[in-house]
């Protein structure tokens, strides 16, 4: 069994989840509370990865992160290496691919918070940032946890985007879903079945967790 591919998958999912929860929280906060011109356009842009075919996202990421794209070019100038076909590359891809799944539940949780609570926090002397940390976050725990679980599940399932941006380098970019695909291509159904089976309990437990969180949010 390809433990290495499973390891890369889990590592990728954990890194993506941690980065996205931290990154998405302030963006979701702005989308929930701030008013600024062009907000609906920004919001649609953030949700775009959800609506695009993964191969299309992958294609644009190759263009952007390739040596001639501006992100890839900057990266090459700074480090001398390539972003494509590296773990860092597929991490960036995975973050963009899962961004909507982090933003959406967090924004929903933040929007549910009564504005009077925030006003009371301001009256009591809290800055906007302190109010976010001391009032908004603790009252959105279940929404943030739901976002984390969704992002985790979504990233362990990523295939097309990662294949395009990262290829299939064992130990670096070859994730479990790519390993399954390659095993099936080589008619090695036993190997494919083993990896596939290992996904079942993970996904099932996480789904149970989501249900628990949703119940918690409703109570």
């Amino acid at each position: 069994m390809d433990y290495l591919a499973l390891y890369v998958t889990l590592k990728l999912a954990v890194v993506t989840t941690v980065v996205l929860v931290v990154l998405a929280a302030p963006i979701a906060y702005l989308l929930a509370f701030a008013r600024f011109p062009g907000k609906s356009f920004v919001e649609a842009l953030i949700y775009l990865p959800m609506a695009l075919p993964p191969t299309v996202i992958g294609f644009y990421l190759i263009i952007l992160m390739g040596p001639r794209g501006w992100v890839g070019g900057l990266w090459q100038a700074a480090t001398g290496g390539s972003l494509l076909f590296t773990f860092l590359g597929i991490t960036v891809a995975s973050i963009i691919y899962s961004l909507p799944f982090a933003i959406q539940p967090m924004k929903a949780a933040f929007s549910k918070i009564d504005r009077r609570l925030l006003e009371n926090a301001y009256i009591l002397g809290l800055s906007r940032r302190a109010a976010f940390l001391r009032v908004v976050l603790p009252n959105s725990v279940s929404g943030i946890a739901a976002a984390a679980v969704l992002v985790f599940l979504h990233s362990i399932g990523a295939f097309g985007v990662l294949l395009m941006v990262g290829g299939s380098i064992p130990g670096e970019t070859k994730v479990a879903s790519i390993a399954i695909y390659e095993a099936v291509e080589m008619m090695n159904y036993t190997a494919a079945g083993m990896i596939a089976l290992s996904f079942l309990p993970i996904s099932y437990v996480f789904l149970l967790l989501i249900n628990k969180l949703n119940e918690g949010a409703r109570a």
Binding site: D114, L117, N120, I123, G125, L126
Partner: peptide, 15 residues
Amino acid sequence: QKRRLGYVFQDYSLF
């Protein structure tokens, strides 16, 4: 934040 006053709302203002 800088006015340092107390404000009691009709309801729902406790965290």
